[in-house]
């Protein structure tokens, strides 16, 4: 089966992470034409999922990965700051560093 994904809505990272998690059970072929990515999904031997179930599983994970990606991007700086504050030697870290 083939799923069409609009790359204006879902970026490469969200798609790649979704494929990563499903790659234990399925093989994937990706083809990007303009803004639309076509993803052909082939079940590996032993898979008993219907096409509809595969599509739902893919889209559910895709949506979640998109949200996770937004959160990760939006919080990467504060994450670095909080880890630095927790683990860096105080002598090397001033309040100004943290507020930059």
């Amino acid at each position: 089966m083939t799923i069409q994904i609009d790359r204006n809505i879902f970026d490469d990272a969200a798609i790649s992470k979704t494929i990563y998690w499903l790659s234990g059970d399925f093989s994937f072929q990706r083809r990007l034409e303009g803004e639309i990515e076509s993803i052909t999904i082939t079940p590996k031997p032993g898979s008993e999922m219907s096409d509809l179930d595969i599509e739902l599983a893919f889209l559910d994970k895709l949506n979640d990965n998109k949200l996770r990606g937004i959160i990760a991007n939006e919080t990467k700086d504060i994450r670095t700051i909080l880890y630095a504050k927790a683990f860096a030697d105080d002598d090397y870290l001033s309040e100004e560093d943290l507020n930059e």
Binding site: L67, R68, T75, L82
Partner: peptide
């Protein structure tokens, strides 16, 4: 408001 780092599952 600002988000802080977290992830989620269902």
């Amino acid at each position: 408001y600002h988000l802080l780092p977290f992830t989620f599952t269902r």
